[in-house]
Design a protein around this nucleic acid. Structure first.
Length: 306
DNA sequence: TCCTATTGGGTACTTACGTCA
DNA sequence: GCTGACGTAAGTACCCAATAG
């Protein structure tokens, strides 16, 4: 049995940004291998296949736990309203049938007033500049289904965001991202779990967030993913441990039985040298005996496991 | 070519806040 | 209304690789 657990998929890069192969091996590159090795040694020191060499007993392919970013929030497909700004083929639709999608963004007013935002927005390279023309409304929406409390919090958020960015050293105010923002970030994260500066700026602009917020969100998201994966790994290894313990118990029992058999049959030692090898795929023991003429004869397989 | 300082982005850990039972 | 658990945004410290001088 061979296990190979990996975090992340370093081989995967942004399909739309293949010029930025950023993910290094250390980025969530946690690989763990567990190889079950079994010393093939038929009976104690008798007719071993070699001088104590180890052989893999399974040809099973490694079990790979693919790290899929878990999605605590409902998945939102990047529809015509939710497009990744850095996608070159993301030609945002200019029309809005319901009049909500790209309407007046109240939050935008506060954002525009931010020096940092303005500067970083201006720093956006021209290929992404089209984004600014197609703001997705992640701020207030007239007639939205959200409750009064949520709207109130949004109001607080809007005001506190402006005050936060003053950087006047006031107490930090925790800003809750809206469901739409979280869902969009989640979709972005599925595309790639790290961002280059361009992507960060574009996302921030798209979501009416500060680049720092996007950055922090991705950091925390990676941390959550890693934590989740660690839990999965732990659970998996626990099961492996249980399986191996059970296997060990079974083999010990089998060994005891064979010893008992050996003791009850004195003529046993007169048999030709026998080698037991376990078939890795079907877990049967193939018995190879040396015949009188020196040739090896393969005896029928013996099922060893229940 | 080697060394060093700088910079940017990453992780790990922590804190503080919002939500909910 | 109070409280504790939990989720998460954000701060901080530190590490590492790339780069310039």
């Amino acid at each position: 049995m061979e296990l190979a657990l990996s975090l992340g998929d370093p081989s995967k890069s942004f399909s739309f940004l293949d010029k930025t192969p950023k993910l290094s091996s250390k980025d969530l590159g946690f690989c763990m291998g567990l190889r079950l090795q079994e010393k093939v040694d038929a009976f104690e020191g008798e007719a071993a296949t070699g001088d104590g060499d180890y052989k893999r007993v399974s040809s099973d392919p490694p079990h790979q736990l693919d790290l899929l970013p878990f999605s605590p929030v409902p998945r939102v497909q990047p529809s015509s309203q939710l497009r990744f700004p850095w996608l070159t083929d993301n030609v945002m639709e200019t029309g809005s049938s319901d009049g909500r999608g790209r309407g007046l963004d109240v939050n935008r007013l506060a954002v525009v007033a931010l020096g940092e935002e303005a500067e970083e927005g201006a720093a956006l390279s021209s290929p992404n500049s089209a984004v600014s023309s197609f703001q997705v409304d992640f701020g207030f929406r007239n007639g939205s289904s959200r409750g009064k409390r949520e709207v109130e919090m949004e109001t607080e958020r809007g005001s506190s965001r402006a005050s936060d960015d003053d950087d006047n050293g006031s107490t930090r105010k925790k800003l809750r991202l809206s469901k739409e923002q979280s869902a969009f970030l989640e979709e972005s994260f599925k595309e790639h779990n790290t961002l280059n500066p361009k992507q960060k700026l574009a996302l921030a602009k798209q979501l009416n967030l500060r680049p720092r917020q996007v950055e922090v969100w991705f950091q925390n998201r990676r941390a959550r993913t890693k934590l989740k994966q660690t839990e999965v790994d732990c659970e998996y290894l626990k099961r492996c441990c249980e399986t191996l313990t059970e296997e060990n118990r079974r083999l010990q029992k089998e060994l005891q039985e064979l010893r008992a058999l050996k003791a009850s049959q004195p003529f046993y030692m007169q048999l030709p040298a026998t080698t037991l090898t376990m078939c890795p795929s079907c877990e049967r023991v193939a018995t190879t005996s040396t015949t009188a003429d020196g040739k090896n004869g393969l005896l029928p397989l013996t099922k060893t496991s229940g």
